[in-house]
Structure formats: C-alpha cells, structure tokens
C-alpha cells in the first residue's frame, strides 16, 4: 500500500512526519488528514481569536498532494441590540 506523510501545524508547533501511514487510496489519506483537524483543535483551543490548524499530505515521492485546514475566528461584539 502507498505511504503518505502528514505534516501538521497548529499555530504553535509544526510537525514534519518522517514515519508516514499507509492508505490504499489517496481518498483515504484525505479523509485521515481531515479527521486529524478537529483532534488538533480540541487539544489547542481555546487559544487566540484566530487559529488555523492545517495538514499537508506528501506522497511517497515527496510531492504534496493535499492541504486541508480548519480555521477558528472569534471576535467581541459591541453590544448590538437584537
């Protein structure tokens, strides 16, 4: 099975994957990358008002084949009436 490498960034720490994981198809690697995003967010939030979590997937040949990100935006409201 082809091996994919998952580089991640939660805004605090970048991680370069030198181990990789095996998936039968690129679509499975895509789903795996996306599933990691809420896990990363859960461990890091609440943080700043703007946080970006991202995963970049490399294939065996070192080519980037996917980028996925999850963005949190929070901001104060100035007490608008409903």
């Amino acid at each position: 099975m082809p091996r994919y490498y998952f580089d991640t960034d939660d805004g605090r720490r970048k991680s370069h994957d030198d181990q990789g994981l095996e998936y039968a198809h690129e679509a499975e690697a895509r789903d795996a990358a996306i599933r990691a995003l809420p896990d990363m967010a859960k461990d890091a939030l609440p943080g700043a008002d703007r946080e970006t979590f991202s995963v970049s997937v490399r294939d065996d040949g070192g080519r980037y084949v996917l980028h996925a990100s999850l963005v949190l935006v929070a901001h104060r409201l100035e007490g608008f009436e409903q």
Binding site: F6, T8, S15, D18, L21, D39
Partner: peptide, 25 residues
C-alpha cells in the same frame, strides 16, 4: 501500531502520528 494506538486513545491515526513526533522531539 499507530492505528491501534488511535483505537486505544480514541483519536485519529494522523493525530497519533503527530503526537508521537512531538513526544520524540
């Protein structure tokens, strides 16, 4: 395996992979 570790701690395999990198780092 990383897949089995993910089944133990209830997170995605890619997250396990990332955490192992961090603990090693």
């Amino acid at each position: 395996t990383q897949e089995q570790l993910a089944d133990v701690i209830g997170v995605s395999t890619v997250h396990v992979n990332r955490i192992l990198q961090r603990l090693r780092g």
